[in-house]
Design a protein around this nucleic acid. Sequence first.
DNA 1: TCTAAACTTGACCATTTTGGTCAGGTATGT
DNA 2: ACATACCTGACCAAAATGGTCAAGTTTAGA
Lengths: 143, 143
Amino acid sequence: MKLTSKGRYAVMALVDLARFDNINPVSLRDISLRQGISLDYLEQIFSKLKKNHIVKSIRGNQGGYVLSKNPNDIKLTNIFHAVDEKVKTVQCKKDSKKGCNGRATKCITHNLWDELENHINSFFEKKSLEDLIQNKKENRING
Amino acid sequence: MKLTSKGRYAVMALVDLARFDNINPVSLRDISLRQGISLDYLEQIFSKLKKNHIVKSIRGNQGGYVLSKNPNDIKLTNIFHAVDEKVKTVQCKKDSKKGCNGRATKCITHNLWDELENHINSFFEKKSLEDLIQNKKENRING
DNA sequence: TCTAAACTTGACCATTTTGGTCAGGTATGT
DNA sequence: ACATACCTGACCAAAATGGTCAAGTTTAGA
Ligand code: FES
Ligand code: FES
């Protein structure tokens, strides 16, 4: 079970973006340099974030991206959903009665994996971008 | 983030095994047929389970595998650890002060991923094989 | 108006991981 | 002796990952 870089980068980039308080658009180039993420890869990620209305783009010189919502309204769930980072504990479809590999029934551990999936998703539903900035501020005060 | 088949199969197979109450050894062939898992693949998995003292093997005719501990003492953590199914939310080493991709410091979201990892692992530490058999029995009574 | 900065799109690709298969063994109960 | 079942290790195809590369389009500002 591992978290892919795409999901991790998406959150990192948005936290970086959120720190600038939406006053000026932030260029991907800046995020790329600060966070050490390939610019080309960031472009792929932000294209998806934009399609999912998490960020807005401002084209042209001095352009860049801004958050399109309040950081409190952007949950990790939304971000992960936008970049196709899904939690998958099973291979069989939820709505189907069939099991994995096309077997006739669900397997004996099926409930367990459902529980696990819910357990993980609940973490993503609770955390918002705001929480991550808060932590940042706390860290700055404490450190 | 997905759970690999290896981890899923390991748990499935052990639940199957645990249902037979350790009286007679259970052959991988039987588990393979009942659970729909390739025999050759099961052998790889059980080799690791054996090395980690989760099961014992009995060779020869009428041989097979038995649990080497009480189902209550076998947590999902132990099983996953045995088959190298790890939870990895980051790429950087925990003990190192360096960040991912060999960067000098940890990234701004590092704490978050640590939290996530702990959140997931806590699920695996709580659940034992016994819990899964219990559920099975309950299901049989209720259904 | 021209140009550089920055967004946009989509094809492409090397490496790694996954989820196995295959071909041989070896041990042991009957 | 022979069938059953464990054991070992090599091998492999397909998918996912984590990008790169090329060729644009849009717009601010000189
Ligand atoms: S997880 Fe799909 S059938 Fe059990
Ligand atoms: S996760 Fe490795 S540096 Fe942040």
